[in-house]
Simulated assay, not measured.
Amino acid sequence: MKEEYDFASMESRSNPYAARLKKPVTIRLDEEILSYFKAMSTDTGIPYQSLINLYLQDCVNQQRRIDITWQQEK
C-alpha cells in the first residue's frame, strides 16, 4: 500500500447502483400487520422492513392487483 494517495487526480464516475437505492417513506400500518412481520422477522432473522419490502417486490413481480369492492349499504 502507498503511504499517500492523490484522490484529486482520480476520475469520478456515477454509482451504477444509485437507481436501485431504497427511498425512506412513512407509512401507517395496522398493528396486526406490523406484529405479523415482526414475528416473521424473529423467525427468519431478516429485518421486518426488509420482509415487507420483499413481499411488496413479489407483488410487483407477480403483477398482483388488489380487488377493492365496497359493499353498498342497504
Results as ranks from 00 to 15, higher is better:
Q49N: 09
D30M: 07
D43V: 04
Y55D: 03
I27V: 15
S35P: 03
F37P: 07
V60S: 05
E4H: 12
K23D: 05
D43R: 10
T44S: 07
R20E: 06
D6P: 00
E4D: 00
D67H: 15
Y5V: 03
P47G: 02
T26A: 12
V60K: 15
V60P: 00
D43I: 06
R28V: 13
Q49Y: 03
T69M: 10
E4R: 15
T69S: 12
N53W: 00
Q57V: 05
I46R: 05
N61C: 04
G45V: 02
Y48V: 06
T69K: 15
C59N: 10
T42E: 13
Y48K: 01
R65P: 00
E3Q: 08
R13P: 00
I46V: 14
K22R: 15
Y5Q: 02
Q71D: 07
T44W: 02
P47E: 01
R65W: 04
D30F: 13
Q62V: 04
P47M: 00
C59E: 08
Q71L: 14
N15E: 09
A39P: 00
D58W: 12
A8F: 07
Q49K: 09
A19M: 11
Q62L: 09
K2T: 03
Q72P: 06
Q71R: 15
S50V: 14
Q71F: 13
S14K: 08
L54F: 05
L29T: 06
S50Q: 12
Q57Y: 10
L34Y: 09
R13M: 14
G45N: 02
L56W: 06
V25D: 03
T42R: 10
S41V: 01
Q62I: 04
P16S: 13
D6N: 09
S35N: 11
S50P: 02
Y48R: 04
T42N: 06
S12M: 09
E4G: 00
Q57N: 07
M1T: 07
F37M: 06
N15R: 01
K22L: 13
S9L: 06
M10P: 00
R28H: 13
W70V: 15
E4F: 05
R28F: 06
T42I: 10
I68V: 15
E3L: 04
Q63I: 09
S9W: 05
E31Q: 13
Y36I: 08
N15L: 05
Q57L: 10
V25A: 08
Q57P: 00
D6L: 01
T42P: 01
M40V: 07
A39M: 12
I52V: 12
C59L: 11
I52G: 01
A8K: 12
D6Q: 04
Q72K: 15
F37S: 01
E32Q: 14
E3N: 08
I66M: 14
L34I: 08
T42L: 06
I33Q: 04
N15K: 02
S9Q: 09
Y55M: 11
N61M: 04
A18T: 08
T69Y: 12
I52K: 00
N15G: 01
R64D: 00
K2V: 03
I27N: 06
D30V: 07
K2W: 01
N15D: 15
D6K: 10
E73I: 15
I52P: 02
K74S: 12
V60N: 07
L34M: 14
E32R: 08
I46L: 04
L56F: 11
R64F: 14
M1S: 09
Q63T: 11
P47Y: 03
